[in-house]
């Protein structure tokens, strides 16, 4: 990569982190995974006792928490975070300022993408930590349940798989949010995508839309879908950079 482009991207990312201070972007990033982790805690707490070698309490928990996360909560978190990151510029009429600076225009888009990707990673990590913490707490407070130790590797594997798949959604929603200032556009697309995906999953259609990647990867443990998420995310990001850099900066 050209050195000045790399420097521009690093500067833009640093500046983006300053601009996001006080933007409230942490609320969906940590609040929504806390909901899913709370659900995991409820499932774990409701277990009377783990009986027999066939019992797989952690399997149920991972299915419940990560399933809910991958199908419903993750797209909503990404849509909300992308809207907030883009909204920081829209509400400050920041584009006309940023695009008059001696920085490659695409660097601002890449910096915004990096911010959303890092916040999505943080949300996924918060969910993982929350589920593990809930398991550790139940083991400590109710030893009579006989809960097996936290399956750290299974948790990390599920989290990594879901996160890699989510990068395509990160690119799609950031593009939408940067293009249209209204939060409603990104959220509307996310809700529509989630509902369509639920119907398609029930019909056994598989990962037809970007919203189906993470749930399908989780259900089938298919690492190839993670690669689709990574590659698709990169391609869509490249499209967003080309499109948004060439647009007139009206505000």
């Amino acid at each position: 990569m050209n050195r000045s482009v790399l420097t521009d991207c690093l500067r833009a990312t640093r500046s983006q982190s300053i601009r996001l201070r006080g933007s409230g972007v942490w609320l969906p990033t940590l609040g929504v995974p806390a909901l899913a982790a709370g659900l995991a805690a409820l499932v774990l707490w409701s277990i009377e006792t783990v009986a027999g070698e066939e019992a797989d309490p952690w399997g149920e928990v991972l299915q419940a928490a990560f399933g809910l996360w991958a199908i419903l909560l993750l797209p909503l978190v990404i849509a909300l975070v992308a809207a907030q990151v883009a909204g920081t510029e829209h509400s400050a009429r920041g584009w006309k300022h940023l695009f008059t600076l001696p920085v490659w225009k695409g660097a601002h888009i890449i910096a915004a993408w990096t911010a959303v990707a890092v916040l999505t990673a943080t949300a996924t990590a918060a969910l993982t930590a929350g589920v593990a913490g809930a398991g550790a707490a139940v083991s400590m407070l109710r030893p009579e349940v006989g809960l097996p130790p936290v399956p750290v590797w299974d948790l990390l594997r599920a989290a990594t798989l879901v996160y890699a798949c989510s990068l395509l959604l990160v690119s799609v929603h950031l593009w939408l949010s940067l293009r249209w200032p209204s939060v409603g556009v990104g959220l509307g697309v996310a809700v529509g995508g989630v509902l369509t995906n639920v119907v398609l999953l029930n019909l056994g259609a598989g990962a037809v839309t970007p919203y189906g990647l993470a749930p399908m990867a989780l259900m089938s443990d298919h690492t190839g879908l993670a690669l689709v998420g990574l590659a698709g995310g990169a391609v869509v990001l490249a499209g967003a950079v080309v499109h948004l850099s060439r647009r007139d900066a009206a505000t």
Binding site: I18, R21, G22, A92, K96, H97, T100
Partner: peptide, 23 residues
């Protein structure tokens, strides 16, 4: 250009810092 592009949740210094870093 017209109204200044300012991030209202940031302090004046933070606004300047965000541009200083970019430049």
């Amino acid at each position: 250009i017209e109204e200044p592009s300012l991030y209202r949740g940031l302090t004046g210094i933070e606004n300047l810092e965000a541009t200083r870093v970019l430049r």
